[in-house]
Design a protein around this nucleic acid. Structure first.
Lengths: 128, 128
DNA sequence: GCTATTGTGTTATTTATATAGTACAATAAT
DNA sequence: ATTATTGTACTATATAAATAACACAATAGC
C-alpha cells in the first residue's frame, strides 16, 4: 500500500488526508494502535518530523490521541468518524461538480460522462 | 469574476489552472488578446512576477504566445484546446472516482450520490 | 532495576514560493 | 520623434515546508 505522495502540495497535508481516509474506510478501526512516528515515517519515506507534524494536526482535530509512551490510537468516537466521512464525501462531490462547471460541462452532462468512464468505453480520451 | 486563490497550493499553479479553464470554457476565444501581465496581476491581487511565472508556463505548453511589445494571445490551435479539455475532464473524473474509492464508496454508489446532491435533497450532510 | 521504545522538542540547513523594487529593449500609439 | 506600454530580467527579502541530526522525559516490557 504505497503512500503516493506527490510534490505539488505540502506532504504533511497529504499524509493527513491519507490517514483520514484509512480511518474512514475502516482500515484503522476505532481504538486501533497506530505504528510509531518513526515507523510511519519510514513507511512513507518522509522525515519523522514531517510525520509528527501530520499526526499532531490529526490529534488537534481529535481524530487520534496519544498516550505518552505507549503510542498513538484512533479515536473511539464513531460518530466523529461518520461525520467526517459525510463531510469529506460531500466536499469531494461538490468540488468535483464545481470543476466540471468550470470546464464548461453542465451538471446534467456529468452523470452520462461518469457512466461512460466507469463502463470503460472511453478509449484514451473523453469525446465531447 | 474573482480569482478565488487559496493558500493551500502554490498560487502560480492555481493561476495556470484558472486561465486554462477560461480558455477551455470559451471565455477567452482562440486569438484573443490577454490583458497585460501587470493588469492581470492587479486583478488577481498577486505580484506581477507571480503572474509572469504562470503565463510563462502557459506559453511553454503552447496554450498562449507572446508578441514582444504588443501583448499576449491565446493560441489559435483549436485542436490543442479541445484536447486539453478532454484530458482535464478525464483527469477530474478519474481523480474523483479515486477519491470516492479511498473513502470506501464503490463506483456503483457514486451516481446515486451525485444525483442526490444535484437534486439538492441532501440537507446539510450526506447520509450513508 | 534496566533497557528499549514512545511521543515530543530543539536547532540548523535547504528549497520553493511569493513579494518588492527596479531596470531595459522593443514597439504601438500619439 | 516622443511617450507609454509591452514582455522580460534581475536582485533581494520573507516565509513555509521538508529534511537532518540530535536530545529528553516517561514508561512498557523484560
Amino acid at each position: 500500500m504505497p503512500w503516493n505522495l506527490d510534490s505539488d502540495r505540502p506532504i504533511f497535508i497529504q499524509i493527513i488526508e491519507k490517514i483520514q481516509m484509512d480511518i474512514i474506510s475502516g482500515l484503522y478501526a476505532p481504538g486501533d494502535k497506530l505504528p510509531s512516528v518513526r515507523e510511519l515515517a519510514q513507511k512513507a519515506s518522509v522525515n519523522p518530523n514531517t510525520m509528527q507534524k501530520a499526526l499532531s494536526e490529526l490529534e488537534r482535530t481529535g481524530l487520534v490521541y496519544s498516550q505518552r509512551t505507549s503510542g498513538r490510537y484512533i479515536t473511539e468516537d464513531t460518530a466523529m468518524i461518520a461525520e467526517l466521512k459525510s463531510t469529506l464525501a460531500k466536499d469531494i462531490v461538490t468540488q468535483f461538480l464545481d470543476n466540471m462547471l468550470r470546464l464548461g460541462i453542465p451538471e446534467e452532462e456529468v452523470i452520462p460522462l461518469i457512466s461512460k468512464i466507469i463502463e470503460g468505453d472511453d478509449h484514451d480520451t473523453v469525446r465531447m
